[in-house]
Design a protein around this nucleic acid. Sequence first.
DNA 1: CGGGATCCGTTCCGATACTG
DNA 2: CAGTATCGGAACGGATCCCG
Lengths: 125, 125
Amino acid sequence: MSADEQPPYDVYNRNCPARMVFTRLADKWSLLIIRRLKTDAVRFNQLRRDLDGVSAKMLTQTLRNLERDGLIQRQIFATVPVTVEYSLTGLGQTLADTIDELALWAENHIETVLESQQQFDQEQG
Amino acid sequence: MSADEQPPYDVYNRNCPARMVFTRLADKWSLLIIRRLKTDAVRFNQLRRDLDGVSAKMLTQTLRNLERDGLIQRQIFATVPVTVEYSLTGLGQTLADTIDELALWAENHIETVLESQQQFDQEQG
DNA sequence: CGGGATCCGTTCCGATACTG
DNA sequence: CAGTATCGGAACGGATCCCG
């Protein structure tokens, strides 16, 4: 493709930074976990209770992914039984700020969204 | 559960506004579509070309969901063959601003994330 | 051009059982 | 307490064919 033919948004290819990050966050629990860890460190089972509906398997899997990306950190305390605490890294905190704005948007506009859904569903019959 | 026993974040139940919105956005294409439509209205096949790897099926499906939520609108022009343009609604534009910040975060921190991934993978062997 | 319908493989995810 | 292992259904997503 020549220079003057490339689309205005070639950033949308698979190697685009935004796309890579969006892909990581685009699962059922990542955004919720980051948001939950924003205020304080939380233990595994506490996190599990706080996030309504998450299974141990998915929680572990999602936490590992976030740890791999350097967004959260895992601290092990040699108690009996063992204690494991998850918390945001410095990097994770900067992302949490942005995600919080997304949550704020949600709270401010959820009513409008819900109404739109109802209207859409009626029109379709 | 009594009032003084409820977790600090009961907002994480399934009916929490943030969670509902996160769930909608947590798929492979929604965030990318909203971001692409931020600058201008785009036709179906153009959108398909811009978003590297999307199939017609998933594009249609995701666009319908976003339309149902009132985030984008669909305009049909009676040309031959027919022309269909997608664009953000007013509501969608307010969300697009927040998503843009997420994309900006990604661009600023993707290097750090990539390095963290490499280190994590090495440590695991 | 902008889809819908169908088929089909893959991945996601929850439930259950088990472990140090 | 903090996981791992396994299983099976559900949802995701691509390929192909068809249509106004």
